[in-house]
């Protein structure tokens, strides 16, 4: 389940270089915190790992296979990216949670029952949120947790969290961080960007971005 960047160089069009010859392996089952100055390219690393960006040179390997040879939907089901700003569509919480199951590529998956969805809401301390309530009326903290549940319903092997606690209050942030530690404890690889100086419990490794390269701290 390891994810590897192999001599990756990346720059945005007409933008400065973000990564230059960067190499690093994220080991399966680890809980990795990615740190670096703002604008250093932390989000870009996560976006490269799920192919929302493509490197100009170098390769990204998942389970030893180059990701650009994989079916994009399969890669993204296994390596799930949760955006920094939670994005929910107008519609109920249930519709938002079941959205991935409406996509052709996920057609073989069985959509979870209401019972399972409710159990997930409870485990993220969202017992007060009804599946029939409107997704666009939730607080940012609640929306972020709904987005995380939505990704986890696809049973990914790796979850990429892009500053999941950036716009959350302390209580919501703690719930998300505890959940991340719990997932990693169950064998899921968690790669998380953090701005905070505090290291959450359960973190096994820290990676720093400096001078366009990646290295374990």
């Amino acid at each position: 389940m390891s994810l590897t960047l192999d001599r990756v160089t990346f720059a945005y069009p007409d933008g400065p270089t973000v990564l230059e010859n960067a190499s690093l392996t994220f080991e399966a089952g680890s809980f990795v915190l990615v740190r670096g100055p703002s604008g250093a390219g932390k989000s870009t690393v996560l976006r490269l790992l799920c192919q929302l960006e493509e490197p100009q040179s170098g390769r990204i390997l998942f389970r030893g296979h180059p990701v650009d040879t994989m079916v994009p939907a399969e890669l993204r089901r296994a390596v799930s990216y949760v955006q920094q700003m939670p994005t929910l569509l107008t519609g109920t919480v249930r519709e938002n949670l079941l959205l991935p199951f409406s996509f052709k590529a996920n057609g073989a998956l069985t959509p979870p029952t209401d019972e399972k969805l409710n159990a997930q809401l409870v485990s993220f301390l969202l017992q007060d949120v009804s599946l029939d309530s409107r997704g666009d009326n939730l607080s940012v903290g609640q929306s972020q947790r709904i987005c995380l549940i939505r990704s986890l319903l696809l049973k990914p092997e790796v979850v990429l969290l892009d500053e999941p606690t950036a716009s959350l209050d302390a209580a919501s942030a703690k719930i998300v961080l505890d959940k991340a530690a719990e997932l990693s404890g169950k064998g899921m690889t968690v790669i998380m960007i953090s701005h905070s100086e505090v290291t959450p419990k359960g973190v096994t490794h820290e990676v720093r971005i400096n001078d366009h390269t990646l290295a374990y701290a």
Binding site: P72, R76, T87, K104, N106, C147
Partner: peptide, 16 residues
């Protein structure tokens, strides 16, 4: 863009 990429990240193709 956020909404489009959210769908892509969840397995949508470009049409979806």
């Amino acid at each position: 863009r956020n909404e489009v990429e959210m769908r892509l990240a969840l397995g949508a193709d470009y049409r979806e």
